[in-house]
Design a protein around this nucleic acid. Structure first.
Length: 506
RNA sequence: GGCGGAUUAGUGUAGAGGCCUAGCACGCGACCCUCUCACGGUUGAGACUCGGGUUCGAAUCCCGGAUCCGCUACCA
């Protein structure tokens, strides 16, 4: 289409925590920009003064910092097109509002909310448009003098776009192809509110995208119905030849039931819908985040990328750079995607498994510190290497390793019932003697000695090992037994068996 | 209601007229591995929304119904 530089933007409203769907939109913007050597900008769309929430902007910036999605320009970074906060761009919008007014593509309207309400009530399917605007109090129906008088008197007004009727407007969408709709179904949307001297989304969005030289608008599907309006605005403003290309992304849907993914789904099913923990400043409500739940940022990115896009083959594990390489709109799906939080857990599991023992140990150390347990890094790495495969989250580490640090206080009943045999007591008593005589207390050596002993006595390996395991671990679970007792050491191992034999009733 | 979008197993998806006896992954079940739990490997159940066309042939193209999603604010 155009050979100009790819410049895309993520433009959230600071109305609360950043929704995970917004994160995905930003991610796709990032992937497309980087794939084509372009820029990604962060713009804050705070044109609704009523919905502004303090802290939301910092939250957004911190979220992307954590996820590793870097912006090239925008709020918090700066750039040639500053300011990037719409509330700081009032004068800029005013200029284009006037241009639209002068060119007859917009008009001033004085109708109060109550009057509009009445009009809506009076006619079914009412919308403010070419057929009905003659019923309103606006600069098309009022005399010039009257309009000026009202404005001079300080009456609050609004500027509406004047949609030309009966015209097919075509939106060329990168994921959906051509979408055509007739301008008759478009209404004369409010573009500007004199009350707070701010534009609405529609105008601000077009003006900023034009001024910031945005080449592609990649946003959620909820914007598809207003895309024709945007196309018209580019035309009315005389910017049709540099209009960006549109791509409307499928929405993230509830894991079950109908509708789009919401915070409530996360609360109900137990998964985060926000990247970071968020405390609502008004209500004090606390929402957990992916970061706080122990998700790895690279796992979140990978999972999100695959909700609505696929590489066209069976590959599932992608680094951010690999995603950049593979991304294309040809493989963005059109239908909304049910949010698969179980798959998200699996991705985290995969990333955890593939981390080095040293990296997982680094996640383990703070947990140990919190429990007031002294453990050097080398030992932590060794322990972690044994349990890495069974983790979904770092917080599972304690559950999987606590027996290395604390003697069992009780013995799992199910395990006892299934694995404790009448001969267990006698076998373990003898095993204590065997272990006591081993000088080389390493896993491999002990395995050799003990297995030979088992064979020589004609014991059942399962009976011996499982009974032994229960006395050491407290249940029929955990890594290779000899690896466990190597870490524990001879004295501790024998103590545990002895104590267990005292406590366990046959 | 109006307008737009969508529709492959429970979920995410592959599939762009014959390669489809519809592939992969998550989840679920079984088996193998094994001293247990995991990991890993093998494997099972499980889908083309429904009707009509077009075609020698349709998951793939066309039309219609159904369902779902979104929009329909001086919110984004």
């Amino acid at each position: 289409m155009t050979d100009r530089k790819v410049r895309v933007r993520f433009a959230p409203s600071p109305t609360g925590a950043l929704h995970i769907g917004g994160v995905r939109t930003a991610l796709y913007n990032y992937l497309y920009a980087k794939k084509h050597g372009g820029d990604l900008l962060l713009r804050i769309e705070d044109t609704d003064s009523n919905r502004f929430v303090p802290g939301a902007e910092d939250y957004i910036i911190e979220s992307f910092r954590w996820l590793g999605i870097k912006f090239d320009e925008g709020v918090g970074i700066g750039g040639d097109h500053a300011p990037y906060r719409q509330s700081e761009r009032r004068e800029i919008y005013k200029k284009y509002v006037d241009q639209l007014l002068n060119d007859g593509h917009a008009y001033i309207a004085f109708d109060t909310p109550e009057e509009l309400e009445a009009m809506r009530a009076a006619t079914p399917n009412f919308q403010y448009d070419a057929r009905t605007r003659n019923q309103g109090k606006n600069s098309l129906t009022l005399s010039k003098e009257e309009v000026e008088k009202r404005i001079a008197a300080g009456e609050k007004y609004v500027v509406r776009v004047k949609i030309e009727p009966n015209e097919d407007v075509e939106v060329d969408d990168m994921v959906r192809g051509k979408v055509v709709i007739n301008s008759n179904v478009l209404d004369d949307k409010v573009l500007y509110k004199a009350a707070d001297e701010l534009p609405t989304y529609h105008l601000a969005n077009i003006v900023d995208d034009h001024l910031m030289e945005i080449s592609h608008v990649i946003r959620g599907e909820e914007w598809l119905p207003s895309a024709p309006l945007h196309v018209l605005l580019y035309r009315y403003l005389g910017w049709a030849d540099t209009m960006p290309q549109f791509a409307h992304l499928p929405l993230l849907l509830k894991p079950e039931g109908n509708g789009k993914l919401s915070k409530r789904d996360g609360d109900r099913l137990g998964f985060p819908v926000f990247p970071l923990r968020w405390v609502d400043p008004k209500t004090g409500d606390v929402s957990t985040g992916y970061r706080e739940e122990g998700y790895l940022p690279e796992a979140v990115v990978n999972f999100l990328a695959l909700m609505g896009w696929n590489p066209g083959n069976d590959q599932e594990i992608f680094s951010l750079d690999q995603l950049v390489d593979a991304f294309s709109f040809e493989h963005v799906s059109k239908a909304g995607a049910r949010f698969d939080y179980k798959k998200a857990m699996w991705f985290n599991h995969e990333y955890l498994i593939n981390k080095s023992d040293a990296d997982v140990a680094a996640l383990f150390m703070p947990i140990l510190a919190e429990k007031n347990i002294k453990c050097d890094v080398a030992a932590a790495e060794k322990i972690v290497s044994m349990v890495k495969g069974r983790l979904n989250f770092p917080k599972d580490l304690w559950e999987e390793t606590s027996f290395f640090f604390e003697r069992p206080t009780e013995y799992d009943e199910k395990s006892l019932k299934k694995r404790w045999k009448p001969e267990s007591r006698e076998i373990l008593t003898n095993l204590m003697d065997i272990l006591a005589r081993i000088d080389d207390f390493t896993s491999k050596n002990m395995e050799d000695v003990v297995m030979k002993w088992i064979e020589a006595n004609g014991y059942n390996t399962g009976t011996v090992m499982n009974s032994f395991r229960i006395t050491i671990v407290g249940a029929a679970k955990g890594p290779h037994m000899f690896d466990v007792i190597e870490v524990l050491g001879k004295e501790e191992t024998i103590d545990r068996v002895r104590i267990a034999l005292e406590k366990i009733k046959d």
